[in-house]
Design a protein around this nucleic acid. Structure first.
Lengths: 197, 197, 197, 197
DNA sequence: ATGTAAGCGAGACGGTACGTCGTGTCTTGTT
DNA sequence: AACAAGACACGACGTACCGTCTCGCTTACAT
């Protein structure tokens, strides 16, 4: 909620906030994405439009907040002692989540980011970079155990993992299944262990 | 243009068609993507709105046609005799083009495809599958020369190449430069030559 | 309607126009003046808001048109052969009409004119000057018959008649009855016939 | 100010009151009437909106208070010994004041009274009846001196004076100048002295 | 050569959503 | 208890496009 309860004046209403979050869920489920307008959110939540605009500049910003709120119980970082097992577990879980309704929402958010530079910043920070850093944690742990070289290029390896995932998510030409997850994980290890690739 | 010149009646006006194509270019250059509306195209082209709707269902359909028209001199398929050189050349050229204004347009089209299932079909066929098949041609040629196994999974290898490219195109966290192109090409070869990955 | 059916393009819809006029009447009768908003007119008439704004800049402009339309059978100019009788008839009729619902509407229009200079012009032309000229016709006829001097100041006499009428209409401190009408008419004759007043 | 300083609790802040009065003047001068909103007054005066609503129900109520406050040095009642001179002086002064910025404000207040019955009562009492009674004082004095009959209808004579003044004020078709004032004054005398008119 | 069927530009139409403004009420903590 | 601050639900504003619908006017094939 990003509350700043310090100053004077009436504090932000938690009821309104919760109602908005709930309205987003309801609308996405019942009306579909196209009907997820500021107008509809306001009406469904029983909230004034100015209240919406006071706290969020547009629909995607609300969506991203709703998404993160319910996915706060994020994909946990596995720690099995083996980098390969960790990777397979992590990528599989990522794929599993993205195969469901969350995947659709996330795909739309990426799409919105193409039209709105300001939103793109938020989107990348909250949904892209956070995941890249999670992956980097796994890789660091693996490197400490000597499973991949210490100087492996984590940025490159993240592209190598997330590139195909996003590509399939957005393009829907093939499923984000476990076989795919395993293959990507092994590709990462192959690349990390091969000098210069 | 998909003309159906058979029947009676006035034939489709080439002037109107050209004016629309030009208007798209003009508007994209001067007003930016957000202002590329049916209304604006009609007014800029000096064309009636019904004429637009007679031939295209929405803005992205017009965009894709304008894009393909000027990019008909597509990325040619290199044929250097070496798969690695071919791949590097092909991927570099792809990246080079996507780094320019075409890249922006293509990214928006991918975004639109997330909101419009009908358009998504066209988009995938004309901009995604055609490229995957071009890549497959290179791979087939390389396989005939014995540079990669004959049973390499071309679908997987296409994901491996295009995934990271699209990821960087949409996300803009890193450049689509030659180093990146070379690295992807080598990754493909590495994967194709490694059993089971 | 002020139609300009000459040019190309779809002609103005008479249905929409009639629906708007009717909606104004309906709303004024059922909801009262405060609810007579552009939004409500559009919804009641089953007409798009842009259509409203295409033809009228604001609510009072629509009101004035609706008013004139139904009051096109205006206060006829009496012609009894006697200026005094003519005046009494004309002023009585004016007062009678202004005592009913039309009076309320007209009072609001005068009020609106205080807030909107552009509307004020239309208002004065269509509702004020036209009445002043009607009165002037009576006076001219009386002057020709020698009932008042030929050089009587018609502007002043109009102020003298309409001033008290408007004052009572807006202020509602006394009725616009026949006694009042007669008294005003006689006052006019007195003033017109008295040198220098 | 209508203070109710009896009970316990913090007394009404004179600073807030003065700030509001000043804000009205400032806003009327700088932003024009349309911008004279509760919101703007509160912000300009540095006063909370609830404070405004605690003491006044709406904008016109504040305006009328501000108006009376600075016009407390009202139009004094002349006493020259002659009714005609008194009347000319009084009406001229009235016209002079109404020709300036006060006239605009007063015209708007009359307009507001058309939309708000509650405000209309206050308005009539404070701005209409008080002036009618002032005029009646002059007439009474004149009657005592025998300049007009004792049984002259003061209500009618007030309509006769104030009607044309308000008409010109609201309609702006002619100036409220001294010639006009003299003419009205003489008209009153003429009417008062003519039996039955 | 001519009728007729389609395409054309213009532009009005019923809608939907936008983002903003002002209203009058409320909830804080402070004075 | 009055205050400044300011969040709130509400509702109207005027605008931008949407996709559809007449209009009257070309074309150019099929009689």
């Amino acid at each position: 909620m990003n509350a700043k309860n310090a100053g004077p004046g009436r504090p932000r209403s938690r009821e309104a906030y919760e109602a908005v979050m709930q309205a987003v869920d309801t609308l996405l489920r019942t009306r579909g994405y196209q009907r997820l307008t500021m107008e509809a959110i306001a009406k469904t939540a029983g909230v004034g439009k100015p209240t919406l605009y006071r706290w969020w500049p547009n629909v995607p910003s609300i969506m991203i907040e709703a998404l993160l709120r319910q996915a706060d119980d994020n994909i946990g970082l596995p720690d099995t002692g083996s980098l390969r097992t960790d990777l397979i577990s992590y990528v599989s879980e990522t794929c599993r989540i993205l195969s469901g309704p969350v995947g659709e929402v996330v795909a739309r958010l990426m799409a919105e980011a193409q039209f709105d530079a300001a939103f793109a910043d938020t989107f990348r920070q909250k949904l892209i970079d956070s995941r890249r850093q999670a992956l980097a944690s796994l890789l660091r742990r693996g490197a400490e155990r000597g499973e991949i070289p210490r100087d492996a290029d984590h940025e490159w390896l993240a592209d190598l993992i997330y590139g195909p995932i996003w590509y399939r998510l957005l393009n829907r030409h093939a499923a984000l299944d476990d076989a795919f997850a395993t293959r990507i994980a092994d590709l990462l290890l192959l690349s990390a262990r091969t000098p210069a690739v």
